[in-house]
Simulated scan of single mutants.
Amino acid sequence: MDYRTLGRSGCAVSTLTLGTMTFGSETDEAGSHAQLDAFVEAGGNLVDTADVYTSGISEEIIGRWLAQASPDVRDRVVLATKGRFPMGEDVNDVGLSRRHLERALEDSLRRLGVERIDLYQVHSWDPVTPLAETLDTLDGFVRAGKVRYVGLSNYTGWQVQKVMATSRERRLQAPVTLQPQYNLLTRELEWEVVPSCLDAGLGLLPWSPLAGGWLTGKYSQEQRPTGATRLGEDPERGMEAYDRRSSSQRTWDVVDALREVAEARGVPMAQVALAWLVDRPAVTSVILGARTLEQLSGNLAAAGLHLDEAEVNRLDSASDPGAGEYPYGELALQQRDRSLSAES
C-alpha cells in the first residue's frame, strides 16, 4: 500500500480508502466488520463514512468494530465522516448551519464511539447558510479538539475558491481535502474543480471510482443488465441512468480501452481503472465501496499498481469528454499555444 498526505496536512493516509456507504444496507454487520479487518490488514488506514449513510447505522457499525479492535488498530485508523444532509424531520435537521453541524458532529462522535474525528467533511454546499457561519463552526470544532482536519465534498470549482479565500480572510482552519465523483467516465471536473484544488492545495478523495460497476466490465453493449448486478437484481434502481450512459458510444470506447489494457496486464479491469485514478493530479486517496469482501479484496489488489505512459495515454484518449468550443475548449487551446511558445 502506498501513502500520501491529506492535502497540505502532515497526516499520511493510504492511497486506497474504505468507503462504507453499503454498511447496514447492502452489507450486514458481520460482512462490514470483515471488510474493515481485511482493509486494515492490507495496510489501509483511511475509513470514510457519513451520518446519512443508512441513517447513522454505518457509523454505529464502525463504532462497534473500533470498540473491539486492538489499541494498535484503533490508533492507526484515520477516521473520516460527513455532515450536511437531513437526519430528521425538523427544519433545522439539515444544512451547514452552526445549529445543525454542532448536533451532527456530536451525534457522529457518539455513534462512532470516539472523542474526535480525524477528517470532518461538509457533505455538499449549502446555499442558505452564510459561508462564514459554516467555516467559523468548523474552526471551532478543531479548536475544541473534536476534529483534527476539515474537508469538503461535492463542491464546484468556484465554491472551493470561495471557501479558501474566506478561510484566509478570517484566519480560520482551511479544508485539506475535497471528495468528488471522479472516474474514467466522469472527468468533467478536470475543467475547473481539479485546477481549483491544485491551486488551493486540496487533496482529492474520489468516490465512485468504478462508475457504479461500469468500469468492471460487467455490462455489455449487446445485453441489458441481468443476474447478480445491482441493476440486474433491481431494475428500478437506476435503469434510466443506465440507458443514458449506455447510449453514448464514448462509454463503450472507454470500456473497450480498459479491457485492452487489463488483458495486456493480466489483471481485472477494475484494478486498471483504480490505478489510472490513483495517479491523477491532486488525488490523495481513492474511495472503494464494496458490497462483499470478495469485491473489496479484488479492488485492494490494485494497491501499488501503476500504469505506464502508453497505457495512460490510451485511457486518456478514450475517456476524453471533450471540452466543446467555449469556454473550456477555446481557452485550453489558447493556454496550450502559449505553453508551446514558452517551451520553444
Rank of each mutant, 00 (worst) to 15 (best):
M1I: 15
D2H: 09
R4Y: 01
G7Q: 03
A12W: 04
S25Q: 13
V40G: 00
G44P: 08
D51C: 12
S58P: 10
I61V: 14
I62Q: 00
K82M: 10
G83A: 13
F85A: 14
F85N: 15
M87D: 05
M87F: 11
N92A: 08
S97E: 03
R99C: 06
L101K: 10
R110F: 02
L119N: 09
Q121T: 03
W125A: 12
D126Y: 05
D126S: 10
P127A: 07
E133M: 05
E133N: 04
V142E: 10
R143V: 03
T156K: 10
V163R: 11
L172E: 02
N183Q: 05
E188A: 06
E190A: 11
L198A: 12
L205W: 07
L205R: 02
W207L: 09
P209Y: 00
L210E: 01
K218Q: 09
Y219H: 03
Q223I: 08
A228S: 10
R230L: 11
R230F: 08
E233Y: 07
Y242Q: 01
Y242V: 09
Y242A: 01
Q249L: 12
R250H: 03
R250P: 04
D253A: 11
D256P: 12
R265A: 00
V267W: 07
A273D: 04
W276A: 04
W276T: 09
W276C: 06
T284K: 00
I287S: 11
R291G: 10
S297C: 13
R314L: 12
G324F: 01
P327M: 01
E330D: 11
R336V: 10
R338D: 05
S344Y: 05
